[in-house]
Computed example of a mutant assay.
Amino acid sequence: MKLLFGLLSPDMDKSGFTCGEAALDTYLQKLASQDMKRGFATAIVARAETAPNKIIGYYTLSAASVLLDNVPAGMARKMPRYPNIPAVRLGRLAVASGMQGQHVGSLMVLDALRRSCANELAWALFLVDAKNERIAAFYEKFLFQRFPDKTLHLWMHRKQAKALCTIENKTK
């Protein structure tokens, strides 16, 4: 099945989306469009090419920052001495219940990294917040690293993201 990725639009069927996590279902159905209009997040949806109005997954991206003091010491030494480090945050990621286990989530993470690397916005870190250890382990497969003091908050340097995007493009 070929997947299409694009911005959430009003003509897409949000009402039928369920992923098994009520908060993620409610966000897509009731809040995602509002967050996009207000400039708080960009919602990207995954759809099957054969059913382009049916959402099978989604994720959100937004601008963020990290205090330099919160970055691991080895990384902080390589950063400019600004108090905040610019970042992109992958806020929510959900896959429809019937599509789970088919690598849709992995493809969405790669799409989020690709979109972020292609964007002209300056950023140094890509951030994700995991809800639990299982999800944190999922992100670690992409080489995300945990913040020492907040182990469910993970990060990746932009150079790593670009390297993953390069690998992804070579496999297409």
Results as ranks from 00 to 15, higher is better:
Ala32Pro: 11
Pro10Ser: 08
His153Asn: 11
Ala73Trp: 05
Glu168Arg: 03
Arg92Tyr: 10
Asn132Ile: 12
Pro52Gln: 03
Thr18Glu: 14
Thr26Trp: 07
Val128Met: 01
Ala130Ser: 11
Gln102Pro: 06
Asp129Ser: 10
Ile56Phe: 07
Val71Asn: 06
Leu125Met: 10
Leu121Ala: 11
Lys162Ala: 06
Asp69Lys: 15
Gly74Leu: 06
Arg146Phe: 07
Leu143Asp: 15
Leu7Thr: 11
Ala23Asn: 11
Pro80Leu: 10
Glu49Thr: 08
Ser62Trp: 00
Ala63Cys: 08
Lys2Asp: 08
Trp123Cys: 09
Gln100Met: 08
Leu67Tyr: 08
Ser62Gly: 05
Arg77Gln: 12
Leu90Cys: 13
Pro72Trp: 06
Cys19Val: 08
Ser106Gly: 15
Gly39Lys: 05
Val45Tyr: 01
Ala64Gln: 03
Leu31Asn: 11
Glu120Met: 09
Ala161Trp: 00
Glu140Trp: 03
Ala48Trp: 00
Pro72Ile: 05
His153Tyr: 03
Ala48His: 01
Met1Cys: 08
Phe144Arg: 07
Val45Glu: 03
Ala124Gly: 06
Ile55Thr: 01
Arg89His: 13
Asp11His: 14
Gln160Gly: 12
Asp35Gly: 03
Val88Asn: 07
Ile44Gly: 01
Leu8Gln: 12
Lys78Phe: 01
Gly16Glu: 10
Leu125Pro: 02
Ala94Val: 14
Arg158His: 11
Phe144Met: 11
Val128Thr: 04
Phe147Cys: 06
Ala122Asn: 03
Asn53Gly: 12
Lys172Cys: 15
Ala41Thr: 03
Leu113Ala: 05
Val66Asp: 14
Met12Pro: 03
Lys2Glu: 12
Ala87Phe: 09
Leu152His: 09
Ile56Val: 15
Thr26His: 14
Ala87Lys: 08
Leu4Gln: 10
Asp111Asn: 14
Lys37Met: 03
Glu133Tyr: 00
Ala163Trp: 04
Tyr58Arg: 07
Met75Asn: 08
Ser65Glu: 15
Asn132Ala: 06
Ala22Asp: 14
Gly39Asp: 02
Asn53Thr: 13
Lys141Tyr: 00
Pro86Glu: 08
Leu127Glu: 08
Ser9Lys: 09
Tyr82Gln: 09
Met156Asp: 05
Leu164Arg: 04
Ala76Asn: 02
Leu164Phe: 09
Gln29Gly: 06
Ala137Phe: 01
Ala32Trp: 09
Val104Trp: 05
Ala161Leu: 01
Ile85Ala: 04
Lys37Gly: 01
Ala163Gln: 12
Lys14Asp: 11
Gln100His: 15
Val104Cys: 12
Thr171Trp: 01
Glu49Trp: 02
Lys14Gly: 04
Arg77Val: 02
Ala136Tyr: 04
Glu168Asp: 14
Leu90Arg: 14
Leu7His: 08
Ala94Trp: 03
Asn53Cys: 06
Leu143Asn: 14
Glu133Trp: 00
Glu21Asn: 13
Ala87Glu: 07
Phe142Tyr: 04
Thr42Met: 04
Ile44His: 00
Gln29Ser: 10
Ser33Gly: 11
Arg47Pro: 00
Thr151Ala: 12
Glu168Gly: 01
Lys150Leu: 11
Leu164Ser: 01
Lys2Gly: 00
Pro86Ser: 15
Asn169Tyr: 00
Trp123Asp: 04
Ala96Ser: 15
Pro148Asp: 15
